[in-house]
Every structure is written in C-alpha cells, then in structure tokens.
Design a protein around this nucleic acid. Sequence first.
DNA 1: GTATATTGTTTATGCAATAAACAGTTTGGA
DNA 2: TCCAAACTGTTTATTGCATAAACAATATAC
Lengths: 266, 266
Amino acid sequence: MQKEGNKELDNVSENLPHGVAITWGLVKEPQRGPKRELSIPMIVDAAIAIADRDGLSAVSMSRVAGSLGHTAMSLYRYIPSKDDLLLLMQEAVSNVAFPPKVGADDWREHMRIFVWSTTRIYRDHPWFADIPISGAPITPNSLRFVDWALGGMKTFRVSGYVKMSIILLLSNYARASGILQRDMDRAFQSGTTPGEFSAFDYSAALKQLVTPERFPNLYPIVMAGEYTGENEEYNDAGNDIEFGLERILDGIEQYLHGNEGGEPEE
Amino acid sequence: MQKEGNKELDNVSENLPHGVAITWGLVKEPQRGPKRELSIPMIVDAAIAIADRDGLSAVSMSRVAGSLGHTAMSLYRYIPSKDDLLLLMQEAVSNVAFPPKVGADDWREHMRIFVWSTTRIYRDHPWFADIPISGAPITPNSLRFVDWALGGMKTFRVSGYVKMSIILLLSNYARASGILQRDMDRAFQSGTTPGEFSAFDYSAALKQLVTPERFPNLYPIVMAGEYTGENEEYNDAGNDIEFGLERILDGIEQYLHGNEGGEPEE
DNA sequence: GTATATTGTTTATGCAATAAACAGTTTGGA
DNA sequence: TCCAAACTGTTTATTGCATAAACAATATAC
C-alpha cells in the first residue's frame, strides 16, 4: 500500500542507476536522524579538487573523506559507490554556460562553440578523460550540451537521427581533441606524472627505430621531425584541432547542400 | 667500461619505457640461470584471453599467472609492471594485416580501410578502449598503422604535418566509433556487465525527465524515440559511423581541392 | 668449479572499496 | 510526551590488489 504521491517519478528513480537519479534531483533528503554534516555537493567538490590537483587516481574514498575531516565510510551515507561519485564529478564539471545567441544562421560558429566548450572541460579538468564512458549521456548537464547543439541545427532539413549523428560526431571529436590537448600540455610541463610520455620526448629514439625498410612512408616524416612536432611554430595542438574541426564542418556542409540546398550534388 | 657492441641501441633502450623497449625487441633474453618456464608472449596471450572473456578489470597479475599455473610474482620476472603488461596487450592486438594494394588513387577507400581496421580491434577486444591513452604512439604496430595510412596519401600535396593531422583525425574518429560500436553491441546483448547502461534501456525514464521547458530542442527528438534509437531499422551504429566518416572524408577532400588543385590558396 | 646471474616461490606491506555492527541523534505518530 | 523507526558517523573486518624483499634452486661464464 503506497502513498499516492508522485508514483511515476518514483518509478523513474527506481529504474535509474542511483548516481543518475541523484543528478536529476530524484533522491530526497532524509527527514529523521541526526543532522547531516556533509552534503553531496561538498563531497563532489572535494573530490574534484583532489582530481584537479593530483589526478583521478588520487581520488579515493578515504582521501576525499579525509579532506573533509571525516572517515571513508561516512561518504557512503551520501553516495552509494565510488562509480557514482565519478559520475557526479563528471556531471558537476559539465555545468557550463553557453552563450544564449549565436549569429542566427551561423551554424558553423555554433558548432565551433559547442566543440570548444567541451574541450575546455578537458583542459580545466584533465582527469575528465580518464573516466571511462559508460554509455549514452542521460544526465541533465550532458543533455544540456546535446540540447544546445541541437539549437544550432534548427535550419537543417534532416531527420533527428542525422542531427544526433552529427552531435555524436562532434562530441567524439571534442573528446579526442581534449585528450590530445591535455597530453600536449603535460608534455610541455615535462616531468609531471611519471609513466606518462609523449612522442616528443622520444624523437631521438624514434629516429633510430623507424627504418625506411620497415616504415617506408613514415620514415621521411620522422626524420624531418614532423612526427613529433619538433618545430615550435607548428607544435600547437590547437592547430590540429582547428584543422580537423573545419574538415568535419566542411563535410557536414557538403552533406547539407546535397540534401537541402538549391542544386543537388551532381 | 662497456663493450663496444651496439652502444646506440643500448642508449635507445635505456631511455625508452621498459614496456616500449620490449615491443621493439630491445630487451634481450637472459643467458644464465634456470630455464624460463614462461615467455612474454605466453603471458600477454593469457592476459588477452582473460580480458576478452571477462573484461579488463578481470586482468590481475595473480589471475593471469594463475591461468598459466604460476604465481603472481613470477610474471615480474618477465614484465616489470602491470602498466607494461597493458601496453603489451595493446600492441599485440594491434598486429593486424593490411591489404597490400588498394585501388591506386582511391585514397578514400584506403582511409575507410584504415578506420575499419581500427574499429575491428575495438569490436574483437572490447577492453581495448578501457586502456587509457598514455601518449602518442611509439610502438611498432601502432606505427605500422600510421605508416599504412600515410601510404594512402602519397598523392596529397600537403606537408607531413597536415598528413599527421589527418591521421590523427581519423584515428580519433576510429577510436570513438569503436567505443560506440562496442557499447551498442553490449546494449543488444542486454544484461551483460552490471553497471553498464545505455540510453536505450532508459528511454522511458528520459521521456519523463526531458521536459520541453528545460530541453526545448531535445524534447521532440526524445519523444519521437529518435534519441535512443527505438526504431530497429535505424538502430545500427554502423550507419552512424559510416555517416560520420564520409563527412570527414568530404571535409578532407574539400581541403585538398582548395590546396592542391589549379590555384594555390594565397 | 666456483662466482654470478637468474629462476620461481613465499612472505609481507600498504592501499583500496566496501560490508557489518554499533552507539548516538532526530522526528513522526501514538 | 515518549518511543520506535530512520537516520547519523564511526570502528572494525574482509577481500583483492600491486609489488617489494628475501630465499633456495639452477644454469652458465670464466
């Protein structure tokens, strides 16, 4: 015999992974019992601070709790598992503001902003990329990203499926670029995390190992120092990222013209 | 007082991470002592078998050793750390054969094969995506991929930097697609790993949570079931992947025409 | 033949996630 | 008003992990 209340929402929250339910505000604060000394945002912020400083591997339940003056087990009164904590961290740093209006019909600029907003998260929070993707986005802030991207495609005369494909393409690109940029940043600061390495540090080794017989096409590029980006002027991940993004946008544009514009492609 | 031998190669191997040195065959078998009962390939193969069956998290030093009838510590006589084992696993499954000749001037087909060869690894070895990227590729099989891709761009009149940017773009796309495809496969087999989830399983929940006020652009797409791919006929990751790839190739083609054709850019 | 390099093993350390039991705290309903 | 239920944060314990150290056995180089 259940209360009438909001039965549908209850169903929803029951069928959702607990961490996801938290992000949607579907988990209610308990009424009875002692006053809580912590809160979910406090815990998530503390975890983010640790990850920002020392990387994701430094985030342990006991270290997060310790930084709040509590024991590890106290966190489990708020967040049921470490995986849920990671999800909440992702969601928290995805809470970015988008410019309300982009030039009304400049969809390319809209999509550029979409991609750069994503890569900025990776730059500000290098650990973001270390959390494995566990499925399609179903948390509020991730969906805000999708929603905002869709806002730039209002004039597209294509199906929702195609729009989602485009968003997927751009999100994936943003993720990959964010990782690249992070790696480049790390390489420039050199001796950061041990165990990390970039080709940059090994160009000397590569020049001995990449032989023309075994790697006929790569050989001249390695020898010219083009593989490891030895030339300062080109050694900027931003260039690569911009280049790739413009290529993708070109491709989308071509597709749109083929499907929507005045004359078809042939 | 060192032997004359191959001093340069010694230097190289000293400055390389140990796991990378192994992949290049720079670590020599010891001469003295009892006969070895294991070998690096045996260990790596055993680890891959476990990861294929039960996922990367099931790969522990003791479980790998156990499957070979040995103790965990014996593995350390061959491979200095678990991170190195992961690197060797990556390298091993990257040992794929490429078709020797593609239609001579069909660079698009060449690049399609490049991307599909990469995604096939992710499909055959779902754990491949769970190993975090630790930097630019410097192992032989990863470089073979790069070399082979370069082979498809011989006619491009662009710098090595641009070619590397294109390869980076396509590799990243392949990785993202491989992950997507793996996730879709998992979703179809439904109750695989607990903790994994796909939007597909939560379309009912999403339809209640995605309100038109909060997600004006996403709302109609979720309601139409287009977000979670409810329609069988469209619910195929391959379509998405192919679509995105063709868009990227379009973009590259457009860039090439702008740079290589009749008139130069400036 | 012996010193030495190397083997696989046992034992031990430290850290991690998290289950279980516990004593104190607040509140809704009697 | 009071008590049972729902909570709190903690202590303790379990299990699994990577890996360091010490060890006796073994094969080779000189």
